[in-house]
Simulated scan of single mutants.
Amino acid sequence: MNLIEQHASFGGTQSVFRHTSKTLNCDMTFGIFVPQHAEGTRLPVIYWLSGLTCTEQNFVTKAGAQAYAAEHGVIVVAPDTSPRGDDVADDPAYDLGKGAGFYLNATQAPWAAHFRMYDYIVDELPALIEANFPVSERRSIMGHSMGGHGAITIALKNPGRYRAVSAFSPIVAPSQVPWGEKAFAAYLGPDRETWKQYDATALLASATERLPILIDQGEADNFLAEQLKPEIFTAEAARHNHPVTLNLRLGYDHSYYFIASFIGTHIAHHANALKA
């Protein structure tokens, strides 16, 4: 790993590292906040997954998470959202290619050579973090929009791996909305049956763990009606008795102003589960 930047923050350190990813066949960056702690202490870790067009910097600089992570004594890791580099396939649109990895393993050309964000988030990145930072085996996951989709699907597909999961404005039914239909068709091909393995709503039926899911959604989010549709997810969750808390926040939109307003609540939710 190479250290790109490091800053003192709320008694801890906010850093950004670059490393070579074997999973993605490119160099990747991630942000990590490590709170002040006694030497030899292993701390629980929260993984944050960002949304379309983002890098690790959006969360690191805009969410205001460091104060809450320091208060609760948790490490927060924020990776980039897709493979990067001159050799990585891309698309001119913002919702496909670089910045739009959708936290899945692509099977279609030209994406399959690099776009394996699911394996990166579930396996390679945690192994790297656990080998180089003072983290314990207690982990949780959360995210925003495309990253909220990633957080929920990854938690549902990996029972027992995470102590908590939460999301801001998640794409909960990607097979039924334009963002997901475009990305899944490109990355996974035309067979919609293959899409279900990365669709949070579809995964509820086969979930073997009833890990409670916390969702915050802005009522003034301009993507709410067309792209997010939380009501599809909550209805399916009710059918399968899967615990979901959906907080509809009046007046809030899709931006990091919304995330910063409620990130403290989410980190407290995760910290309580991680320390239980």
Score class of each variant (00 low, 15 high):
Leu3Ile: 10
Leu3His: 10
Ala8Trp: 11
Ser9Thr: 10
Ser9Val: 15
Gly12Lys: 09
Gln14Ala: 15
Ser15Gln: 14
His19Cys: 00
Thr29Arg: 12
Ile32Gln: 03
Val34Ala: 11
Val34Arg: 11
Ala38Lys: 14
Thr41Pro: 01
Arg42Leu: 14
Pro44Ala: 03
Pro44Gly: 04
Val45Glu: 03
Ile46Asp: 00
Ile46Pro: 01
Ile46Met: 04
Gly51Cys: 04
Leu52Ser: 12
Leu52Lys: 11
Cys54Val: 02
Cys54Met: 08
Thr55Trp: 01
Gln57Leu: 14
Phe59Tyr: 13
Gln66Glu: 13
Gln66Met: 08
Tyr68His: 12
Tyr68Lys: 06
Ala69Gly: 03
Ala69Val: 05
His72Ser: 09
Val74Lys: 04
Val76Ser: 05
Ala78Arg: 00
Pro79Tyr: 07
Ser82Met: 00
Ser82Phe: 03
Arg84Tyr: 13
Arg84Glu: 07
Asp90Thr: 13
Asp91Met: 11
Gly97His: 08
Lys98Ala: 02
Gly99Trp: 02
Phe102Gln: 02
Tyr103Arg: 04
Thr107Pro: 06
Gln108Met: 14
Gln108Arg: 14
Trp111Glu: 06
Ala112Tyr: 09
Ala112Asp: 12
His114Trp: 11
His114Ile: 11
Phe115Val: 04
Asp119Gln: 06
Val122Glu: 05
Asp123Arg: 09
Glu124Ser: 06
Glu124Met: 07
Leu125Val: 09
Leu128Asn: 01
Ile129Thr: 02
Ala131Arg: 03
Pro134Asn: 11
Pro134Gln: 07
Val135Gly: 15
Ser136Tyr: 08
Gly143Met: 06
Met146Ser: 08
Gly147Lys: 07
His149Cys: 12
His149Leu: 14
Ala151Gln: 01
Lys157Val: 00
Asn158His: 10
Tyr162Cys: 09
Arg163Glu: 08
Ala164Trp: 05
Ala167Glu: 07
Ala167Lys: 05
Ile171His: 01
Val172Arg: 07
Pro178Glu: 06
Gly180Ser: 08
Glu181Asp: 12
Glu181Leu: 14
Lys182Val: 12
Ala183Phe: 08
Phe184Trp: 12
Phe184Val: 12
Ala186Tyr: 11
Tyr187Asn: 09
Leu188Trp: 08
Gly189Asn: 09
Arg192Ala: 10
Glu193Arg: 15
Thr194Asn: 15
Tyr198Ala: 10
Ala200Phe: 13
Thr201Ile: 03
Ala205Met: 07
Asp216Ile: 14
Glu219Leu: 15
Asp221His: 04
Phe223Arg: 12
Glu226Gln: 10
Glu226Gly: 04
Leu228Gly: 01
Glu231Cys: 04
Thr234Asn: 13
Glu236Thr: 15
Asn241Tyr: 11
Asn241Thr: 12
Asn241Gln: 14
Asn247Ile: 09
Leu250Thr: 15
His254Glu: 09
Ile259Asn: 00
Ile259Trp: 02
Ala271Phe: 10
Asn272Ser: 13
Ala273Trp: 03
